[in-house]
Every structure is written in structure tokens, then in C-alpha cells.
Simulated assay, not measured.
Amino acid sequence: MMQRKLIVIVVVAIFTSLFCCKDDSKKEVEIVQSTTSSHCPKYILDQKENNLNISVLLDLSDRIEEPKIKEKDSAYLSSLSKAFVEHVKHKKLILLEDRMQLFFNPEPSDNKINEIAEKLKIVFTKETAKAQIDETVSLYALKPSELYDLAKTDAQNSGEYPGSDIWKFFKYDVTDYCIDACHRNILVILTDGYMYYDKTIMNVKNRASYLTPKSLNQLRLNKSNWKDEMEKKDLGFIPATTNLNDLEVLIIGITSHNDENPYSQAIIEAYWGKWFNEMGVEKYKIKNADIPSSIEKVISDFILKT
């Protein structure tokens, strides 16, 4: 009799253990699913490639001293807003999950500049009124010009331009600010292609966190074999981060300003292209500072055609 009771106890214990393991297994699966799932609803996630998350990084260095820069950059931003609104207007209202925002690095000292940037932060959802969508184009047609005027005044008062620490933006901010699991993530950078900030100067062998007209000339890549030399010496930017495969980048405004090297613009583009490849950016386009009507098509094609 005692032996039979013992057998029953053992059998019950085995079954209890099996069921507990099964429950634990379920819990473990649930935890994994909850940590890997997106924070957006499934119907939004299914439309990921149709949900635009456009970030703009403005280079407010001394490049904006040139009178034409404000005019061109303002026109580029206006074209960007038109492409964004064109995209939005072709979506069903219930599927609206699109945004556009402006960044600087470092943050300008003039709060008015930051206030304008806040006004240019656009978020469209199914709750958005049609009037807000139409207002976006007029906002981006007027406010960028005001922003540049403030930046120049700020520079004159302080004796220096805010500058642009693009390298550090990629190192510390681009993933948090510009990449969202529910969206097609696009970063537009308005810059002349030179990268320099006096508080972020690093060198690792033949790599650097900067490129200036002076440092470019010191590379002595002024012959037709510059590409071979660049590869041989492993010249380029120091990679700031990795795993940017969910980010697309459009650079507008490349201009060499360098009469000593006929290949300077091509070298600048090669530096950026190599940098993006090494950080995992799979889709990018690098364009020179052309007339706004030409760049408008470039922007439209990049934003509206995947």
C-alpha cells in the first residue's frame, strides 16, 4: 500500500513538473515576443515603407556666410516639404503615420532658432486636420530663411558660427533621433561636404573625424590616380557607429571650394560614401550644390521612389 502511494506521488510530481515547464516555456516566448515586437500597431508596421520619418541635419558652420547658401538651402527645404506633403496626400487618412523634423549639432545658443526648429517639427497621424498638412509647405517656404538670418546674427554677436558636429551626431544621436521601427527613415544633410568641429578632432592612423580644405590638400590626392591612393593608404573618416541599415541618407550641397585640387569634389564624395558603407547605410545619395530646380527632382525621386 505504501509503495502504491509512493508511485502515485512520483507520477503526480512528474506531471506537475511537465506542466510547469510548459507554462514557463510559454512565458519565455511571450517575453521574447514582447521585447522584439514594435511599439506601433500591426497595420502601421505592415505599412512601414510607406511611413516617412524624415530628419534634416543643418550645417550652420561658416558656409552660411555665402549669400547664396541661405537661398539655396531654403529652396531645398521647401522642395523637401513639397515631396513630403505629396507623399502624405496619397495615403489613406487612417494610415497616416508620417513625420519631418529638423536637427542641429550642437544646439544653437539663440533660443529663437530652436523655436523655429520646433515649429518645423511635423507629425501627421489619422487625427491630423487637412489644414495642417497644407500649412507644412508654407512653413517650410518661410521659416528656414528666418532661421538662417538668426544664425548669422548670432554668429556676428558671438564672433563665431555655431558650427556643425556631424561626426558626433552620427556617433551619439542618429539612432535615437532618426530611426524608428515603424517608419522608412530618411536623413537629409545640408552641408558643403567638409566635416569639422573644433571639439571633435580625432585621428586613427590615416582616418580622421574631420575633413577641411587644408587637410584635403595635405593628402596630396591631386592626380588622376587619387582613388587608388586613397584605397592604398586607407584614407577616410573614422566610422562613428554601425548597423545603420535602417537609415537612408541624402546629402545636398557638396561643393569643394578648393582650387588646388581638381578632384576635390570627387574625393569629398568618396569620403562620405566610404563612411556610409562602413556604418551600414545601404541607400544614400550625395549631390552637389546645384540650382534648386534641379535638386527638386533629386529630392522628389529620393523621397517618393523607394
Rank of each mutant, 00 (worst) to 15 (best):
I69Q: 10
L187T: 02
Y76F: 15
W275A: 00
H183T: 02
I116C: 09
I64G: 03
K168D: 03
L80S: 00
K287M: 14
A181S: 12
N258V: 01
P162S: 11
N157S: 05
I179K: 06
D180L: 03
I268R: 15
C21K: 00
E107V: 10
K297W: 13
S61Q: 04
I189D: 08
E229N: 10
L150D: 10
D290L: 13
L235R: 10
N114M: 15
T255Q: 14
I166F: 05
N114C: 12
G280F: 10
I254W: 12
F124H: 14
G193R: 02
L18R: 00
L250W: 08
I295L: 14
A117R: 10
L120Q: 06
I189S: 05
D62E: 08
V174F: 07
T36A: 14
K68W: 15
N105P: 00
I238N: 03
D154W: 04
Y161Q: 01
P292S: 09
Y194T: 00
N105T: 05
D176F: 07
N203Y: 10
T16I: 11
Y197M: 06
L45Q: 13
Q156G: 00
D301M: 05
R63W: 03
S209P: 03
G253M: 04
S37N: 09
K5S: 12
V8N: 11
E86F: 11
M1C: 07
P292N: 08
F169C: 04
N157D: 05
A131Q: 15
L221K: 03
K287G: 02
K205H: 12
Q47L: 11
I251M: 15
G273A: 07
D134L: 07
D62Q: 09
I295F: 09
K227Q: 11
H257M: 05
S158A: 08
I286A: 07
K89G: 11
I295R: 04
I201S: 01
K297N: 13
D246R: 08
W272E: 02
L58I: 05
E127G: 02
K48H: 13
H90W: 11
P106L: 04
